[in-house]
Write a protein that binds this DNA or RNA. Structure first.
Ligand code: MN
Ligand code: MN
Ligand code: MN
Ligand code: MN
Lengths: 217, 217
DNA sequence: GCTATTTTTTAGTCTTATCTAAAAATATTT
DNA sequence: AAATATTTTTAGATAAGACTAAAAAATAGC
């Protein structure tokens, strides 16, 4: 049995280390999970004992195949629940994350798979993140960060990296949503800001914002 | 904040003591929750400190108004989730309880109330149990135990007291479902068994089974 | 290559929720 | 009303998960 806390660590390692294939440092996990390095060391040992993680002292941690699958299943559940909340329960995309953090730990294979079917087997969550299938696989979205575009380039807003409600509310306020057509007009080297144009208006976004916007061409 | 464990104790006290109004013994709670009397004493003290329970040493426990409301909200969530699982996710009534035991602890007022709306504001769960409203109120079902009927009496199966999958699977096997018209044909004093007749067939049920069947007239 | 800094691990505490065993209070019998 | 049995509480222990402070190892700077 994988506990709730263990699931959160697996998720963190999965996200930080390219699906757990690249070694992740104790400190990186601690920061992600908002805990302390010493707590992380303890938990990593436990995951290693359960054959969910590979751990060598002082050399970071990766996931075993079992750990990778367990992590992918939690992420699958998280994202399916987010879709459910938006599609069926009138949540907006900035309200779903915290509730999904709770729902992702509910244990029932049938529940996940029936939910998947109810939602019509969605491939992406409300933030554009891909939803792993039962085997934990997904085709990585071929989107690029908006900072990699040149003035004149355009595409569709396909994914946002930050799912915090502060960031999403900023996008709401500025009428930016997934699926929007966006054209890059100008890049300002001084502060890395961008001038962009949507169907409705022209605006300047900071590099902090740009970092989190991914465009499919 | 009420913890998951505290919520389970509140529920137990609510169910055992007529919505928490009648004093419940330490041992009764221990048995219900499958723990030990000493653990119960500890937890009751904590609930009393949080003003959720009234506790006098050696005299059992009742719920405060806040405790009653908290318990009713957990039960509301439990039953709404059971309806959701049956109505939207193709679960059968013997598969929902364990999953609902997990889902009832998810914290989000919006989630519960939107779920309620999605389901069309149901008044009863798949086992015929009433669903409390936002204020924790519900009109108690006016159903009677089948053992109180006399031969010749008939009515509709409206509620089952035991929600365990063993019992529900027994009913499935014998083609008994909520809403079925049932007529009592004979009562056998030797073992308190009943002969009943449904639209499809005639059968004998033990007093153990009969104890859990409630009929509305 | 040796110091200084940073990172990671270890040692020792704390909190929550359990448990067992023993003590205290209450209830039941004779 | 005493003796016995049952129930409840207390005391002390344990496990999971987290923390702080100190020690050990790895990395960076000179
Ligand atoms: Mn999320
Ligand atoms: Mn998401
Ligand atoms: Mn139930
Ligand atoms: Mn039920």
């Amino acid at each position: 049995m994988v506990t709730l806390s263990e699931e959160n660590y697996l998720k963190a390692i999965y996200h930080l280390g390219k699906q757990g294939t690249v070694a992740v440092s104790t400190n990186a996990i601690a920061e992600k999970i908002e805990s302390k390095a010493s707590s992380v060391t303890d938990m990593i040992k436990k995951l290693a004992e359960k054959k969910l993680a590979n751990y060598i002292k002082y050399q970071g941690v990766t996931l075993t195949e079992a750990g990778r699958l367990a992590a992918a299943l939690v992420i699958r559940k998280h994202r399916l629940w987010e879709v459910f909340l938006v599609e069926k329960l009138n949540f907006s995309w900035d309200e779903v994350h915290d509730v999904a953090e709770q729902l992702e730990h509910i244990k029932s294979l049938k529940l996940v798979n029936e939910l998947d079917a109810l939602l019509g087997f969605p491939t992406h969550d409300p933030h554009g993140d891909p939803i792993p299938d039962k085997e934990g696989n997904y085709s990585p979205l071929k989107s690029v960060n908006i900072l990699e575009l040149k003035p004149g380039d355009e595409g569709v807003l396909a994914q946002v990296k930050d799912s915090s409600d502060v960031f999403l509310k900023y996008l709401n306020k500025n009428n930016l949503a997934l699926g929007d057509q966006i054209k890059v007009l100008d890049f300002e080297p001084f502060d890395n800001s961008l001038t962009i144009e949507t169907t409705s208006r022209k605006m300047i976004i900071s590099s902090e914002v740009a970092k989190n916007l991914y465009i499919s061409l």
